[in-house]
Amino acid sequence: MSSADQTLYEAMCSDDQRRVEWATHQLTHRVKAVIRRHVLDNSGSEEDAADLIQETVLAVWAQLRSGQYQPRAEATLDAYLYGVMRNKWLKVLKSRSRVGMISRLDDLTEEPTAEDEPERLTQLQQAFSQLGETCRELLQLFYWDDLSFDEIAHRVNASAKAAKVRKYRCMLHLGALLRGEKQDGNE
């Protein structure tokens, strides 16, 4: 792995949103043209290409973060990402019943890469979507938008203390969902 790949890898695995954002931009910029060309050359549209880039980068990020992908000296990050991309596009084509066409495409060979579905991420998203809308909005304001409790209180038309209590209750609800526990009806 080159030093540029190593820097990108470390930034992608970081908890710092700014570093992750920078690394995602870099990685997307490096691979978007190749993925786009691959999709357009293999029965896909511009929209398919945009979706595939989005899904591929997200899946790779999840795999890097979870430790499913281990950096190796002989393999570049781009090559790994292209492997994930090809598998994903193959699944899309199969789901569209174009297997006959696929068999004619030499480069669309399914490689034994790591599981390319960010399964854990899907589980988290499913649990989050089970929360009420108020909870989702409040938690997004805190975690996604990084707002203070005073700002959140203003947005949700409540006191800062009430917003804080509501946030903890929502978290307990989400935690219970994730742990498969019965909730206490706190939301």
Binding site: V20, L58, W61, A62, R65, Q125, M171, L172, L174, G175
Partner: peptide
């Protein structure tokens, strides 16, 4: 309660980062 809060906090940080990744890809595209 302690375990639930910890699990939720970790999940929310993960989801927030995933959203950052999605937004960055969208912006780059």
């Amino acid at each position: 309660e302690c375990a639930q809060l910890l699990a939720a906090d970790k999940a929310l940080r993960e989801l927030a980062l995933a959203e950052t990744v999605r937004n960055a890809v969208r912006s780059e595209l």
